[in-house]
Simulated scan of single mutants.
Amino acid sequence: MAEATFTFRVEEELKAAFSEAAKAQDQTDAQLLRAFMRDYVQRQQAAEYDKWFHQKVQKAIASADAGDLISGEDVEAEFAALREEVRKSSAQ
């Protein structure tokens, strides 16, 4: 993976305290910052997924409330037919 330099300004006291905290964990400042950045990106991706999932659930609830449903018996019958089709094609 290509690497890039990330430069930013921070108060000297904060930098010194951060460096000491990183050193206490046997890590460099850069290692710890990369870990924080990865964690932040993962949390953002999880939040985006949660939002997408919530929208899908709300859409499904609205569809069910509107009566747009398929009975369990119909679903079972459809998949039983599909399973039988696969069995027949596997046997040949």
Rank of each mutant, 00 (worst) to 15 (best):
D65L: 11
S71R: 02
E3T: 09
A35D: 08
A24P: 00
F79P: 00
F53T: 04
A17C: 04
D65F: 00
Q92T: 14
E11W: 00
V10I: 14
A64H: 11
V41K: 02
A62H: 06
S90I: 14
Y49E: 13
A21T: 06
A24F: 00
S71E: 04
I70F: 05
I61G: 01
E13Y: 02
A35Y: 07
Q58E: 12
A64D: 05
S89V: 12
D50A: 15
T28W: 01
A22C: 08
D74P: 01
Q58Y: 03
T5H: 03
A16F: 03
S71M: 00
A21N: 05
F8D: 02
R83E: 13
A2S: 12
E84N: 07
M1E: 04
R38Y: 03
A91I: 04
F8S: 07
Q42P: 00
V75Y: 10
A16S: 13
D26Y: 10
L69S: 04
A77G: 00
R34F: 02
A77Q: 12
R83Q: 14
T5W: 04
A24I: 00
K15C: 03
M37W: 07
A35F: 07
A35C: 06
A81T: 05
D74I: 03
G67M: 02
A91K: 12
A64M: 08
V10A: 15
L82K: 12
L33D: 01
W52M: 05
Y49A: 07
A80G: 03
W52R: 15
E3S: 13
A21C: 04
V57I: 15
D26H: 15
F6A: 10
Q58T: 13
S63P: 01
A30Y: 03
A16C: 02
Q25S: 13
A35H: 08
E84T: 11
K59N: 14
E73H: 06
M37I: 14
S19E: 13
A62T: 08
E85M: 12
Q42G: 01
K15R: 10
A30L: 05
S19N: 14
Y40S: 12
T5S: 09
R43W: 09
D50M: 06
L69K: 14
D74E: 13
Q44A: 11
Y40F: 14
E13K: 14
R34D: 05
A60M: 15
V57K: 10
A22P: 00
R87V: 08
E20R: 14
A30I: 06
Q44E: 14
R38K: 13
E3K: 10
E78D: 10
A16L: 08
R83T: 09
A24K: 04
I61V: 10
R87H: 09
R43L: 09
